[in-house]
Amino acid sequence: MLYQDQFPIVEERQPIPPAFETFGLPQRGPRVEFGFVSCALHNRFLFLSREKDQLIQFQSDRLLHNWRKGLNTENEYPRFESLIKDFEAELYLLNEYMKNLNTQDLRINQCEITYTNQISLKGSQIYPSQWFRIMGLDDFNVENMSLTFTKLIHGSDNSPTGRLICEVNSQLDSVGAPLLVVQLSARGAPRSTSIADALDFLCIGRDLIVKMFAEITSKAAHAVWERTQ
């Protein structure tokens, strides 16, 4: 079975609905998400590594590869360069499998890369607002907060190809300590439907996410991370 050696644990979940980035009218307000869920769909299958820190998710129209830190604080992020190589191998493996069934290559119509960072506020020396350049809520004691904004990703001909999506939300960790969850995603259509162009989009998206994270976080936050790294 595909991926069985490295991902021997199988779980089943409801499928994720399709999501496409399209462009037209200037967006004047928050993005209103709506859709329909009345069609019969196959489930989403999760294939987890023995340590459960890496997983492949597969459904009829998606392949995802996730890394997660989990509760093991010693678990180090294997870095993007390593993960994208794994994902490339998984995509080509799936492509070969599908070609045997369909005599047709995968045709990829949408790509997404997401980084989720948890910033613990427990014992923090600086205010939550001081982590970010984009907020000025000093001394403003909020119960919880949620912030979302998007930016366009442009192709080489300057036409829009995707969006950078930034979401910051307050949450509690597993022991009830406050934290901020920063989720940065790049999503859009690859230049063509080939695997090579899909991987190219993910690499560009990753660079944009890293750049945006540095842009939205403050010097004070960088100083704290420097100290804790």
């Binding site: 392949l63 949408q110 790509c111 997401t114």
Partner: peptide
Amino acid sequence: MITAFSEGFFS
């Protein structure tokens, strides 16, 4: 999370 979508293989 790294994702790629495709359509057409599994209706």
